[in-house]
Every structure is written in C-alpha cells, then in structure tokens.
Design a protein around this nucleic acid. Structure first.
Length: 571
RNA sequence: CGGGACGUGGCGCAGUUUGGUAGCGCGCUUGCUUUGGGAGCAAGAUGUCGCAGGUUCAAAUCCUGUCGUCCCGACCA
C-alpha cells in the first residue's frame, strides 16, 4: 500500500460528518432532511448552506460530470466575478427590470454593485471588446460558480436557495444556424448530464422568463417535491404548464334553446356554480378582466376548469395586469359573475380557442348573483380574438398529436435558451461579418443548477433509511465496515481490503470508528454509500465478508479472495 | 408582502392556559461491563428560555415592540 493510496481512503474516524438521528425541525422534504441528517449540509441562513466534506465530494462529482460534458462539446471554462458593477446592469436595463431579487450593494465610495444572479451582462461586456471577427465565431464559454438571488421565499433546502452553485454557459454566433447548432449540442449534452447523474428526467418546452429570448427548453427531474408542473405526451411533446399548449376537453352544458338568465345567489366561485347547476366545471366559462399599458379593458374567457395563463396574457396585451376588486367595480363589472354578454363598450374580448368546441356556454351575467346559460358566440356576444391563453393541464389534448396529455411534477435542474441579440443589442456587442458589415452577436445561454441537481438526485434516490447515491455521484463507491477496530484480524483485514480496493481504483471509505455495529450500519445506510463491505469475526472464520448493495438491499457473503472481483462486477 | 406556526443546553421536545426562579430523550465527558442493526449501569458537564422594553414582590410563562426560522400563497434559473 502506498501512502498516496492510503490518503485517498476516507477514514470515518477523522471525517467531519455529524449525522443526526432525528429529522431537523425545519426540514420537510426528503432531500433537505437527508442531506442534513447525513451531515452533508448545514444551514447558515434561510436559503444559504454550508457543504460539509461528504456533501462537497458529491458536489465535486456533479461538477466533474458537467465539466466533462461542456468540454466535450468544445465549451471553454472561465471564471467570472460574482461581484458585478451596476453600470453593466444599467446598460442592459436589468438593474430596474430584475427587481428585488437582485442582491444590490455599494462599496465604500458609494458605487453600485450587485451579486450576480446570472452573467449575461458580464460576459457580453467581456467579449464585445475582444471578439471582433466572424472568424472567431462561434464561441462557447462556461463557468461553475456561486450565484445570488434574493428569493422572495427560499425553501426546500437546496432546491430554492438564495445562494447556490450554477454552471452557466454562453455562446456567441454570427447567425441563427450557428446558434441553433450550439443550442442542439448543449441540449444533447444536458441530456447526457442528467443521464449520468442517474436522474429520471424530461426535456420540456419552457417560458424564457426574465432571461429573455425566445426558444427555451427546461430539463426537469421528475419529483413530487418539484415546484414545476409539466405535461407530456406519448408523441414526445412535453412542456412546462406555464409554457405549454393543449386543447381543453370540455363538456356541453345541457342543450339550451337560447340565452337564459338564472339566479345564482351568493355564487362567485366556479366550483360553487358548477355544483349549483350540477354540471362539470369544464362546461362553464370563467372571465378574467385586466388592462395593459394602453388602458383598454380586456376580458379573457377561459374554461371554468382551467386557469388563465398570465404569461400568455402578457404576451397578447403589453403590460397586462388583472384588475383588483375596486377596479372591477369601477369598470362596471361584477366579480364572481363576470361574462361576455353585456360588457361595457370598447372592451376587448379574448377567448381560449378550446372554447370553440362547445356551443352553449354557462357564463356570468355581469350582474351580482346572476349567470347566463345557453350563451352563444356570435349570437349573444362577439369574441374579438380566439387564442391559446390557458395554463395547460393533465387531461388536455396534445397540441401536436391530439392524444391525452399526462401530468407530472418536476424540479428544473437546467435550462437552455436562445437569447438572440437581446444583450448584444442593448450592450452594443458587435463583430465584423464576412461582408465587412458590423453585426450584433446572436447569443445562447445555458444553465445547470449544480446544488439543485444534488437535491434532485436525493429526491429520486432515497428510502426510509437514507440516501441511495447513484454510483456516478456517490461520495465514494464502497464503505468497508470493520465491526471491531481493536488490533486484530478483523481490523487488519478491513484495512487491507480498503487499501486493495483503493489500489484497484475504487473510491473507498473505511468506518474505523469505535462504534457499535448498529451505529455503523445505520450511518452507512443514511449516508448512502452504494456498497457496504462488512468485516466481522463471524464471517472471517470462513474467510468471508458480507457485501451489501444499498440500492437493492441485497446482502451476500463473499469469499475474501473474490470480493474485489465481485465489487468490480457490482459497480 | 398576505395567511398560519414556531424560537427553551449541540439536536429533538415538555413546561406557557392558571407567574413562584427550568426539565425529559438523544448526544457529550469519565469509569466499568457489553459488542453483527442506533448498548447497560454509575458519576458528571452544558441553558442570558431569540432580543429589547413594560407589568409585578416575583416573568420561559402576562403585555408591547423587534429579530429570526418553517409552511401555504403571490414570485422565480
């Protein structure tokens, strides 16, 4: 055994891994509870965590996977500052647009800075001076670095922190074809990363949010604890519900001869209305009123079973905001019984396209305590525009193939965007094209939540005993557990096995603590080593050790001289 | 920011209703015994009861303010 090999063995007697018997009071979801209990992380403040030695090892594993995939598609690693001058954010306009989520501060001279929540500004300012010719394009740069976002509500441990580690990559292109090519390479690399981390995932169509741009795709680790909802279809279509499109399956309210006003005293909510009429919510129509920056009153009609998608509404009406209760009244409308019949003049009426599949609508009568049944489009009211404006949901029909969409929850572990020229234009980043003209770069940006991925993996790999790390990200491959650490055959055999495993290239932990068997077994299960090799007097009498596979729980006795081979075959 | 809950040794909690000067389990220290799934016995150490005011002879307990934390919502890579 060389000294180098010995140094690579994680000695539990010296390792700082304070495991907890009980769940911490402030941790709810599995990843938060188990990462805390296994001594991998500790909280410093709400949404701010320290990574202890084992947690740090897992992070390093994830980072290695990310690096290998980035390097593999020709992206180059850089390191940008977390502390960024405010001027760059003035240039892009995001000093104002980003809102309170941006961590702002001043230096002693009163100059403005922020702690970077993302790095489009920084990287654009970097390359605009040095990347001058189309001959140098395309170029992809990335970094793995800490980010800061002053989240409204940090939660779920590592899933939504105020400080977190992200891999962010940025690409620069002379034209759309080049951007598309890199975007495709990145997407493929992201899929491979998820696979290598062992995640069960789906790539979904996404909204591009605050980052800007148009084409965007999110990589979701499927998990009940996830904050995102998504729909997917057997044809391959998948989308975040905030971005996706589907056709709502609606039901016709009992055939009506014509418009009929009915009294619905005290009924405001769709659920109450549906109950009152003994009809499904999907046979009713809900109206939502708001105004954009142009001040025109706009009423959106969506099926009672569905929600209005405010992102889509905002895309149709610039600066759209829903009216509050006072404004509803001031506009001459009645909250709880709003509808398309008898709206104030000059109201813009937009209806969800799925509503075309039903003829006779149940709608509000714009009069408190009253609704209409049997309202018909083009007879009783006129829709100005039919559009996709609902939040898609499970059970809707796929916009691409017409099959029924399935629903799931997911953790957004990464996202790819095509930014276009949003930042190169606002920040004046240009290059000389082949024909000699000055053109704005087309950009892409690509993020991976490294710490979030770690939590997502635990969400998918745990049981009532603890974490079950996939081998690719485990803090070590195998833990050798001697049941006696006094001088003697048991301990010396365990030490030799650990050294042998390490010499063969395995990552090894040795639980050389003077603890009882139960403590070691429970900690090993909690920490989640993929393989445990137990060395005890009982087995050693027959020259055997016990190997336990954490994932399956399978235990078997293995002859000492065969254990290395069995280990290799199992890993 | 709205709604809800909670801050008591390192961790998990009781005690607060009805004020009387702080307790349990785990962990920690020492010793003996034990040793294949979170050991037993014995002896110990550790608390400005989040913080600041106030009421009272007396405050963990009542009142006011404040800070922190978690959950739901709005928001968001």
């Amino acid at each position: 055994m060389t000294n180098d090999t010995a140094k690579n063995i994680i000695r539990m007697s010296e390792l700082y891994t304070p495991t907890l018997k009980e769940d911490p009071a402030d941790a709810e979801i599995a990843s938060h509870r188990l990462l805390m209990r296994s001594g991998m992380i500790r909280k410093a403040a709400s949404g701010v965590y320290t990574f202890l030695p084992l947690g740090k090892k897992v992070l390093a594993k994830i980072e290695t996977i990310v690096r290998e995939e980035m390097d593999g598609i020709g992206a180059q690693e850089v390191m940008m500052p977390a502390l960024q001058p405010a001027e760059l954010w003035f240039e892009s306009g995001r000093w104002d647009d980003y809102g309170p989520e941006l961590m702002r501060l001043e230096d002693r001279h009163g100059r403005g800075f922020c702690l970077g929540p993302t790095h489009e500004e920084l990287i654009t300012s970097l390359v605009r001076n040095e990347l001058r010719s189309y001959k140098d394009l395309p170029l992809s740069l990335y970094q793995i670095q800490v980010k800061f976002r002053d989240e409204i509500r940090p939660r779920f441990g590592l899933l939504r922190g105020r400080e977190f580690i992200m891999k962010d990559a940025y690409s620069f292109h002379p034209n759309q074809a080049s951007l598309q090519e890199t975007y495709n390479d990145m997407s493929a690399a992201y899929g491979r990363m998820c696979d290598r981390m062992g995640l069960t995932w789906r790539a979904v169509e996404a909204d591009s949010g605050q980052i800007g741009g148009n084409t965007s795709c999110e990589f979701m680790a499927l998990a009940e604890a996830g904050e995102a909802e998504l729909v997917y279809c057997s044809c391959g279509y998948a989308a975040n519900t905030e971005a996706g499109e589907g056709t709502a399956q609606l039901e016709e309210y009992q055939a009506q001869k014509g418009l009929e006003k009915i009294a619905t005293p005290g009924i405001g909510a769709i659920s109450d209305l549906a109950k009152h009429l003994d009809t499904p919510e999907s046979s009713t129509v809900k109206a939502m009123a708001g105004r954009g920056t142009d001040g025109v009153l706009t009423v959106f009609l969506v099926p009672g079973s569905h929600e209005l998608n405010l992102i889509k509404a905002g895309r149709m009406v610039d600066g759209f905001e829903l009216l509050n209760d006072d404004a509803i009244e001031a506009a001459g409308l009645s909250k709880g019984s709003m509808g398309p019949v008898g709206l104030p003049p000059n109201t813009r009426l937009v209806a969800e396209k799925s509503l075309r599949t039903i003829e006779s609508w149940v709608v509000g009568a714009n009069e408190e305590g009253h609704h209409y049944v049997g309202a018909k489009s083009d007879v009783d009211f006129t829709v100005d525009e039919w559009a996709d404006i609902t939040v898609v949901k499970e059970g809707d029909l796929c916009a691409q193939c017409g099959s029924i969409l399935e629903g799931a929850r997911g953790i957004e572990v990464s996202q790819v965007f095509q930014l276009g020229d949003k930042y190169s234009k606002s920040m004046g980043a240009t290059f000389s094209a082949e024909d000699g003209s000055e053109q704005h770069f087309l950009m892409g940006c690509y993020g991976v939540g490294v710490t979030r991925s770690m939590a997502a993996i635990v969400e998918q790999y745990n049981d009532d005993k603890g974490i079950i790390w996939p081998i690719s990200v485990a803090p070590a491959h195998v833990c050798v557990i001697p049941l006696d650490v006094e001088e003697g055959e048991v301990f010396s055999t365990a030490q030799k096995l650990a050294a042998d495993f390490a010499a063969l290239g395995f990552e090894v932990a040795l639980d050389d603590r003077d603890e009882r068997a139960g403590v070691k077994f429970n900690d090993a299960d909690l920490i989640g080593w993929p393989i445990q090799v137990v060395v005890g007097k009982r087995g050693l009498g027959e020259a055997k050790v016990e190997m336990k596979v954490r994932k399956s729980g399978e235990k078997k006795d293995v002859a000492l001289d065969a254990i290395a081979d069995v280990l290799r075959d199992t890993l």
